[in-house]
Amino acid sequence: MGKREDVAELFNGISDKYELANHILSFGLDIFWRKKACRKLFRINGGEKIEIFLDVATGTGEVLKVCKKKNIKYSIGLDPALKMLKKSKEKDQNLILINAGAEELPFKDSSIDIIFVSFGVRNMEDRKKAFSEFHRVLKDGKYLVILEFIHREKGGIFYHLAHFYIKYILPYVGGMITGNFKAYKYLSYSIDHFITANILKNEVEYFGFKIEYIENLFPTVSIIIGKNEKN
């Protein structure tokens, strides 16, 4: 199996307790991070109508739950882990959900208004191919939002304490909550070995996005919002 299938299998194995584990492991900060990113997106977008809001790596649909606005016509969640999508559907039968990966989006060119990726970029099998797909399906002048664990070029004591927690404590606590130690060892590794915000910014810009906003959230999470530029 490739990375996409392996990661999907890991997430399928923790789908029943994924949200609970997230809230406990982040001390509830994961809820704040998503809400913060949504609020910033809606401020940048203004009151413009959003025909299609696409949440890539939607998991159990937490972003779709938080990012609700009257001016959104269709909210769509996409994820390669089928059991995660089923948990999302249990919470909201009205959601449109697609079992697919970010590298091959089943949408026409210039058909999407917003793409949101919450803690999913580091798990992608081919990040650059996914960014190319985001550029293809997003309308000109519309937005990509990335919320992700990011390495800081310079970090203070709380940043280093957070990475100690992620590397040495999170895998075991997550494993105890879900019964799946393998999944949380992988998640810890994927965070610890991910790129810096500057490298991610450069990658996003290379594929046709103008960075509109970057914010580093306590302790190791960043919001990056890029405007799609077709020309």
Rank of each mutant, 00 (worst) to 15 (best):
M1L: 07
K3I: 15
K3V: 14
R4Q: 13
D6G: 10
F11E: 05
S15Q: 05
S15D: 13
N22V: 02
H23P: 05
D30E: 14
I31H: 08
W33Q: 05
C38L: 00
C38S: 01
K40N: 08
N45P: 04
G46A: 07
E48N: 11
E51C: 12
E51G: 10
I52C: 03
F53A: 02
L54F: 04
G59C: 05
E62W: 05
V66D: 14
C67S: 09
K70Q: 11
N71A: 10
I72F: 00
K73P: 01
S75G: 13
P80C: 00
P80F: 00
A81D: 11
L82C: 11
L85A: 04
S88M: 07
K89N: 06
E90P: 02
D92N: 13
L95I: 08
I96N: 10
I96Q: 10
I96S: 09
G101I: 03
I112V: 15
I115V: 12
I115N: 09
I115P: 06
F119Y: 12
R122M: 06
E125D: 11
K129W: 09
F131H: 10
S132F: 12
E133R: 12
H135Y: 12
V137L: 03
L138S: 00
V145T: 15
V145C: 12
F149T: 07
H151P: 06
H151W: 09
G156T: 06
G156I: 05
I157H: 09
Y159F: 08
F164Y: 14
K167C: 10
N180R: 10
K185G: 15
Y186T: 10
Y186Q: 02
S188M: 11
Y189V: 04
H193Y: 12
I195W: 14
A197H: 07
N198L: 09
N198V: 11
F209P: 04
F209C: 01
K210H: 07
I211D: 04
E212Q: 15
E215C: 00
F218A: 03
P219R: 00
P219K: 04
T220A: 15
V221M: 02
